[in-house]
């Protein structure tokens, strides 16, 4: 995996397309140590080589340039990543959410987001005599 400066992200993909990486595989995001990384993979169908690229998103800006102009197949992936991780793709023409009814509230794929279902349902593993956290909830998770 190659790390790319966010400012050069879209340029890098334009270059890869010119070099024969015609097949867009996927784009998603990954939360690493409270920082978001956007990752994407493209393939050169001629020689079967692939490139996996990553860029660290500046938390203050929360944005990266869309690569959908270069790879049209990336539109769906960027829409999904925007909806689930709250990352803004600059220049993405289609901003309609895929699954969420409302984009209010914290993006569901962030580790800091406590899912409502886990707030409302009592954890069956809670010991009576001491406090213990269920797996998969934030450290400051509190039962409603």
């Amino acid at each position: 995996m190659r790390n790319i400066d966010t400012a050069l992200w879209a340029d890098e993909f334009r270059e890869l397309l010119a070099r024969g990486f015609h097949f867009f595989d996927f784009l998603t995001a990954y939360e690493r140590d409270s920082q978001l990384e956007v990752i994407a993979r493209v393939v050169n169908p001629e020689n079967k080589q692939s490139q996996l690229l990553a860029t660290l998103i500046d938390p203050n800006r929360g944005a990266v340039t869309s690569i959908a102009i270069t790879y049209r197949g990336a539109v769906w992936h960027e829409r999904e990543t925007a909806e689930m991780f709250g990352i803004y793709f600059v220049g993405l023409v289609d901003e309609r959410p895929l699954l969420r009814r409302s984009l209010l509230g914290s993006p569901p794929m962030l580790k800091s987001t406590v899912l409502a279902a886990r707030m409302l349902k009592p954890w069956p593993g809670q010991p009576s005599h001491r406090k213990q956290q269920p797996i998969g909830v934030a450290e400051d998770w509190l039962q409603v």
Binding site: P124, G125, Q132, P134
Partner: peptide
């Protein structure tokens, strides 16, 4: 021992 209850990802076991 509650291990099954606590490790269940679906929270579907109660004891």
């Amino acid at each position: 021992c509650m291990i099954c209850v606590r490790e269940c990802p679906a929270w579907c076991i109660e004891l």
